[in-house]
C-alpha cells in the first residue's frame, strides 16, 4: 500500500517537472472498480456536451458526465446513495497539486440538477496547455474554482464505512 502510494507520488512528481500533461485520468479511492481512462476510453463512453462561458467567451465542452464515471467505478448512486454513504465525497486532484471537493450527492443526478462534466475537448479540439488533457466543467457553479483544470484524479473518499 505504502509503496503504491510512493510510486504514485514519484509519477506525479516526474509528470509535474516535465510539465507534460497526464495522458490518463484516474477514478480511485473508495471504489469497487478503480479506473484509469485515456482519451480513447472516454471517447467510447456516452458523450455529453456543455456550453459554458469562459470569462465571456462561449465554449462548447465535450466529455463524459462525472456520474457516469462514478457509476462505472461502482460508486453508490441513486437509491444506493443513502445512510453512511451520504458522508462521501470526491476529492479532485490537479497536476499542480490543486484540490477541490464535491460531495457524492451533489454529483448524483438523482439529487441535484447540477451535473459536472469531465471534458476532454473544447470546441471540438482536444484540451491542451494550461487546461491539461482533462478538465471538469461545472455549469451549475457560479465561480470557476471547481472547474478543475489539469485534472489527474477523482478520488472517492468514504468517511463512514
Amino acid at each position: 500500500m505504502l509503496t503504491r502510494h510512493l510510486c504514485f507520488f514519484l509519477l506525479l512528481a516526474a509528470g509535474a517537472s516535465a510539465q507534460e500533461p497526464t495522458a490518463a485520468v484516474q477514478v480511485a479511492g473508495d471504489v469497487t472498480r478503480p479506473l484509469t481512462l485515456a482519451s480513447g476510453d472516454l471517447a467510447r463512453m456516452p458523450r455529453a456536451s456543455v456550453k459554458a462561458s469562459d470569462h465571456g467567451v462561449e465554449t462548447l465542452y465535450e466529455g463524459v458526465w462525472v456520474d457516469e464515471l462514478l457509476k462505472r467505478a461502482g460508486v453508490p448512486q441513486g437509491d444506493q446513495l443513502r445512510g453512511k454513504a451520504m458522508a462521501s465525497y470526491v476529492l479532485v486532484h490537479a497536476q499542480d497539486g490543486y484540490q477541490a471537493v464535491y460531495s457524492l450527492a451533489e454529483l448524483d443526478p438523482a439529487f441535484t440538477g447540477n451535473r459536472v462534466l469531465l471534458a476532454d475537448t473544447a470546441n471540438g479540439k482536444p484540451l491542451f496547455g494550461e487546461r491539461g488533457r482533462f478538465q471538469l466543467v461545472a455549469p451549475g457553479d457560479k465561480a470557476h474554482a471547481r472547474s478543475v483544470r489539469m485534472l489527474t484524479k477523482l478520488e472517492v473518499v468514504r468517511l463512514r464505512k
Binding site: 510539465q19 499542480d96 497539486g97 490543486y98 496547455g129 494550461e130 489539469m150
Partner: peptide
C-alpha cells in the same frame, strides 16, 4: 507554453 501553465496554476 510552460509559462502559460505557470500563469494559470494557482499552486505555482
Amino acid at each position: 507554453k510552460r509559462g502559460e501553465v505557470i500563469f494559470f496554476s494557482g499552486e505555482r
